[in-house]
Every structure is written in structure tokens, then in C-alpha cells.
Amino acid sequence: MTAHRGPRPATPRIPPLEPGEMDDRQTELMAQVGLDGPTVNIFATLVRHPGLFARWLPFGGKLLAGKLPARERELLVLRTGWLCGSTYEWAQHVIVGRTAGLTDTEIERVAAGPDAEGWDRFDAEVLRAADELHDDSCITDATWAALAERYDEAQLVEVPMVVGHYHLVSFTLNSLGVPLEEGAAGFPTGPDHG
């Protein structure tokens, strides 16, 4: 299943700031990101709105260090990025997903969705939750029951919060035209991936 994807900006509508272009507040906020190496374009773009950035960063960080197992969280994030047609989100979370234990085969299979051959039952339900939230803004009773077999209440709260947050991020990345970093891979291609 591929989501309808209209054209995306070919160039940044709001370009990332270079370190020398940042004021003291933006520089301070970027230091909180804790990156080693080059600035990541998402942060260097969103820091153009320092007040919003300062509130968003801890929320996103909490979800990345939340109650869901990292591997399953990354299944939700990657599926959401795919469904939203957010190449940037996909590319960044391929890296995070690998660190969380996803294999390259699993990452590619995310694009094919929950009914693709090879998923275990629970992974398929995690992906299905992302699809249901994307398509209907609600997890069905059947999928909820499957998730509740393994997840506690805090984890169940996090599932729609993660998917919702990464919709927000995908919408923003797509609309602002945040460019991929040099060498970052985009979406998988091939007969099963549109």
C-alpha cells in the first residue's frame, strides 16, 4: 500500500540555518540537540522558530526514550514516514531503526505494510496500528486487543502519540522542503514499493 503522494518541494522553502547564521538563542537550542558531527537539517530548519523548537524538542525526545521498545517504535515511525511520503523522515529513521535492531530487510518490508510476508504477528499489528491511525485516526478494536496482549497502559498511550507526532514531523518536513543530508538514502524502490 502506498499513500497518495503529490509533488514535494524540489528545493527548501525554508532552508536550514548554517551555524554562523544562528543567533545566540538558536545556537543554545542547537547545543541541546546533542549532535556529534554536522548539523542535521531538520533541527537547523526548525530552530528558525526558537520558541516552538524549545517546546518541541523535549516532547520528541521523550517519545524517543519512551515506554515502547525502540524497535517497535521505529516500525511505527518508519511506517508513518512512508504513508506520509516523507523521504526525510524515512531516511533519518532508517538509521535510527538499524540502531534499534531492525534489519535492512525489515526496513524495506515496512514499505509493503502489515500484510507483507515475513512479519511476525505482533510486528504486523504494530504496523497495522500506524495504518489505521493514518487512514481513520483511530486504532480498531481488533488491533488494540492485539497490542494490549503485550503492551501496558503507558505503552498503549504512546502508540497513537508516536504516530501522531511523526505525522506532525512528516507534514512539516514535506511542506518546508527540508533537504536530505549528503549521502542519505531515500525511499526503497522496486516492484513492491511503488
Rank of each mutant, 00 (worst) to 15 (best):
3 A>E: 13
6 G>L: 15
9 P>G: 02
10 A>E: 13
12 P>V: 10
13 R>T: 10
17 L>V: 07
17 L>R: 12
17 L>G: 03
21 E>L: 02
22 M>C: 14
23 D>C: 08
25 R>D: 04
27 T>W: 00
33 V>M: 03
34 G>E: 03
39 T>K: 09
43 F>H: 13
44 A>C: 10
47 V>Y: 04
49 H>D: 07
51 G>F: 07
56 W>N: 08
57 L>C: 13
59 F>I: 12
60 G>D: 00
60 G>V: 05
66 G>K: 04
66 G>Y: 07
66 G>C: 09
67 K>S: 14
67 K>C: 07
68 L>K: 02
69 P>A: 14
70 A>C: 03
71 R>E: 14
72 E>I: 04
73 R>F: 12
76 L>E: 05
80 T>K: 04
82 W>A: 11
83 L>V: 05
83 L>P: 12
85 G>Q: 12
87 T>H: 02
98 R>G: 12
99 T>V: 13
101 G>V: 11
101 G>K: 07
102 L>V: 06
104 D>I: 00
110 V>Y: 00
116 A>Y: 07
123 D>S: 15
124 A>H: 09
124 A>G: 14
136 D>C: 13
136 D>I: 05
137 S>V: 06
140 T>I: 10
141 D>Y: 04
142 A>F: 02
143 T>H: 07
145 A>Y: 00
145 A>V: 06
149 E>D: 15
152 D>R: 07
153 E>V: 10
154 A>T: 08
154 A>Q: 15
155 Q>R: 13
155 Q>N: 08
156 L>W: 06
158 E>G: 01
159 V>G: 00
159 V>H: 04
160 P>L: 01
164 G>E: 11
164 G>Y: 12
170 S>I: 10
171 F>N: 09
174 N>M: 03
178 V>S: 08
181 E>W: 06
188 P>N: 04
189 T>M: 02
192 D>W: 13
